[in-house]
Amino acid sequence: MPTIRIELPFHLRTLADVDREVTLDIDPPATLGALLDALEDRHPALRGTIRDHVTQHRRPLIRFFACQQDISLISPDDLLPEAVAGGTEPFIIVGAVAGG
């Protein structure tokens, strides 16, 4: 089972009481939805902060980056990039427009 690396923005790190990068083991297939499910299972404090509680849609000001690509618009059923699924590149969650 591959270990996936996830980078969290500052506010979610403080909320979940974790370091910048967290790691998760998820069963294949390594989809976006499976990653977010596993992240929320491991860190319940993050439920509702990345995607809506009810619709499960990504919150409007959250973006997903990986492998120098913006993958915010991929479907929850889409596979993550191979480098993310294999643990060589992190899946990066960022707040859109970094200021504030």
């Binding site: 909320l15 979940a16 009481d17 974790v18 491991r42 860190h43 319940p44 404090a45 439920r47 509702g48 902060t49 509680h53 009810v54």
Partner: peptide
């Protein structure tokens, strides 16, 4: 906390 020692609470559900 979760078994991993992470904060377990969630409370931001207003529907």
């Amino acid at each position: 906390t979760t078994p991993d020692g992470m904060p377990a609470g969630e409370s931001n559900k207003f529907v």
